[in-house]
Design a binder for these strands. Structure first.
Length: 643
RNA sequence: GCCGGGGUAGCUCAGUCGGUAGAGCGACGCACUCGUAAUGCGUAGGUCACGGGUUCGAUUCCCGUCUCCGGCUCCA
């Protein structure tokens, strides 16, 4: 008997029946055999040592692919559990999947793991790996499995719930053994533990069983595993790079903002340089909105609780709001967690005509949300922040055109700030929970889809993930080190116009309900600044840099000339500092560079004589003796705002 | 909110097995007047997060609060 195997390139080979993936890989080449960690048979990943009994498509999964690393990490998770069960008597193990860049395993143990425990576990894992223990697959009946895992309550629960993800499907469950250690698992795994060449434990943390905070709190250990020591080192370097870019650290070093504990958690103060950066961004936001036919409004930070009752926020969102302030023992006020009700009141302040629509109200609106203490993270997740928020009131027939324009506007803004890679999520109707007619939903979803396709934006549909009041698009960007951030959100809302009984007079003089679009492009100014700082590692482009150039006088006698040069450049609208401190030239240059200023000018005797300066642009070598006009032209070009 | 780990000078950190503390950088002063990523010397600067307890004595041990970090959960 023989089987015909088809490869991804379309070629075919015949093998003896019951050939294994390992043998197929070996028949193709020794390098492939060495790199193989699993095999995909008709798209389903399985172990290298399983016999293939029928014709099919075969793809060898190698350790340097994402799928291959997945296998490595899954196997590493087993080895970690094995080590923990070896070292900690009575430890119960729960689940241990591969995740992006690593893996984890959850345990129930007497005491939380200490850093020293992690070292011991890592050492034990190294021993297990060195022993080259084979991973062997076995299929057990439910009864057998319950017997094997009799003293493991989490495993028992998985078996009883017949969780296919964890290897328990139908009447059989699959398990993997290496030596005495056995775990429920769907596989596949590497053939033996020695294939794990670069494994490192990262940290431990609390986590809930099944992610449910009402259930047992387990101890999770995170680890990472890679195909080689070099790949592991590169990953650790990436983590360090992310740490170097941390906007909380850079914000302090560059004197942009801080979080005084006297204010309370999640509340930032903006120092002069950060305040300037913010102002530049806000000015950009206002002028581009005005240019796109938005009208700027302003609204207060508090409002009567009744308003939030009417908008529904107090029913659905009370936990996220600051508590009430009762005035005169009768009236309760709340900090605003959103701007929409205010904009709605402006719309409803008088009768509206179809001639005014779409009516686009824009506000840099500062809102306050009582985020749970554990989730606060610098500017990324704060309790007070300013949205570049707008509510667009339009006729049903205009939704498509409006969304189209809006998405174009959104991408323009994101590109202006230097982002080039975008991905979107389209969240659609949850058939269980929605308001508004199916027809309206279909129209809105079609309009969102069309807008995405016209903009050639790659997107994924999140089926049923829309809010009950309408579908939405979220736009994500990739930053300089490949991280994904959600920035913009465009939401269609069929509910609030109803809640507030908004009407306009149509061209037939009938009263019609407008459709509302909520949208924020940067999302929150605070968070946007945080993301920019991390994206640029603090080295902001010229137009955003609070100080665009520092002038360094070589000696005291050059300070006057330095000030003249600064004056000259100020007239071009440039933001220039003169560093007249009593330090060496080297020290002042170092200071300007570590402060990430886009340009440094050095002026000495020869520059005074020739009306020139030494010009050193970020990342470039210095040019000596550049004429001031050329310096000015060069800096103006470097610091030009996108619009 | 939950689990774990922290909070010592402006910053980064060391230290005190319970007897009220130290470095580097920064700041300030003096000298130097200097041409490309740290000039030298000196000085000041601390309720050891806050409140309570134990103790002859607490920055150190215990409890509580605030706050930060890493996760979990959450982000209408």
């Amino acid at each position: 008997m023989s089987v015909t195997i088809t490869f991804p390139d379309g070629s075919e080979r015949r093998y003896d029946s019951d050939v294994t993936g390992a043998e197929i890989a070996a028949s193709i080449g020794p390098r492939l055999a060495k790199a193989a960690v699993a095999v995909k048979l008709d798209g389903v990943a399985t172990d290298l040592n399983r016999a293939i009994a029928q014709d099919g498509m075969v793809e060898i999964v190698t350790e340097d692919s994402e799928e291959g690393r997945h296998v490595l990490r899954h196997s590493a998770a087993h080895v970690m559990a094995q080590a923990v069960l070896d070292l900690f008597d009575g430890a119960k193990f729960a689940i241990g999947p591969p995740i992006a860049d690593g893996f984890y395993y959850d345990f129930e143990v007497e005491q939380p793991f200490t850093p020293e425990d992690l070292e011991r576990i890592e050492e034990r894992m190294a021993e297990i790996i060195a022993e080259d223990q084979p991973f062997e697959r076995d299929e057990l009946s439910v009864a057998e499995a319950l017997d094997v895992f009799g003293n493991q309550p989490f495993k028992t629960e998985i078996i009883e719930s017949v969780d296919e993800q964890e290897g328990a499907g139908g009447s059989e469950v699959s398990v993997y053994r290496n030596l005495e250690f056995v775990d429920l698992c769907r596989g596949p795994h590497v053939p033996s533990t020695k294939r794990l060449k670069a494994v490192k434990l990262m940290r431990s943390a609390g986590a809930y069983w099944r992610g449910d905070e009402n259930r047992a709190q387990l101890q999770r250990i995170y680890g990472t595993a890679w195909e080689s020591k070099a790949a592991l080192a590169a990953y650790l370097e990436r983590l360090e790079e992310a740490e170097r870019r941390d906007h909380r650290k850079l914000g302090q070093e560059l004197e942009l903002y801080s979080f005084p504990s006297e204010l309370g958690s999640g509340l930032a103060v903006w120092h002069p340089k950060g305040g300037l950066l913010r102002t530049i961004i806000e000015d950009y936001s206002r002028r581009t909105h005005l240019a796109h036919d938005y009208e700027i409004v302003a609204t207060p930070h508090v409002a009567k609780a009744d308003l939030w009752q009417q908008s529904g926020h107090l029913d659905f969102y009370a936990e996220g709001m600051y508590p009430g302030m009762v005035l005169d023992e009768t009236t309760e006020y709340r900090m605003k967690p959103m701007n929409c009700p205010f904009h709605i009141l402006i719309f409803g302040s008088r009768s509206r005509s179809y001639r005014e629509l779409p009516l686009r109200l824009f506000e840099l609106g500062t809102v306050y949300r009582y985020e749970r203490s554990g989730v606060i993270h610098g500017l990324m997740r704060a309790r007070g922040f300013t949205q570049d928020d707008s509510h667009i009131f339009c006729e049903e027939k205009d939704i498509a055109a409006e969304l189209q324009n809006l998405l174009d506007f959104t991408l323009m803004v994101l590109r202006d700030f230097g982002f080039t890679e975008f991905e979107a999520d389209l969240s659609t109707k949850d058939p269980e929970k929605y308001i508004g007619s199916d027809d309206l939903w279909d129209k809105a979803e079609d309009a969102l889809r069309l807008a995405l396709e016209t903009a050639e934006l790659p997107y994924e549909v999140a089926e049923g993930e829309g809010a009950f009041y309408g579908p939405k698009i979220d736009v994500h960007v990739r930053d300089a080190i490949g991280r994904r951030w959600q920035l913009s959100t465009l939401q269609v809302d069929f509910a609030q116009p109803d809640n507030f009984d908004l009407l306009y007079a149509s061209d037939h003089n009938t009263r019609e309900r407008p459709v509302m679009i909520h949208r924020a492009l940067m999302g929150s100014i605070e968070r946007f600044v945080g993301i920019l700082v991390e994206h640029y590692a603090g080295a902001l482009p010229g137009w955003l840099a609070p100080v665009q150039a520092t002038i360094v006088p070589v000696a005291d006698r050059h300070v006057a000339y330095a000030s003249e040069v600064a004056e000259r450049l100020h007239t071009e609208g440039l933001r220039i500092d003169v560093d007249a401190a009593d330090d060496t030239v080297g020290e002042k240059i170092r200071r300007a560079i570590t402060q990430k200023h886009p340009a440094v000018l050095v002026v000495g005797d020869s520059d005074v004589a020739a009306q020139t300066a030494g010009l050193r642009l970020r990342g470039e070598d210095e040019r000596r003796g550049v004429a001031l006009d050329e310096v000015a032209a060069s800096l103006v070009e470097l610091c030009r705002a996108p619009r």
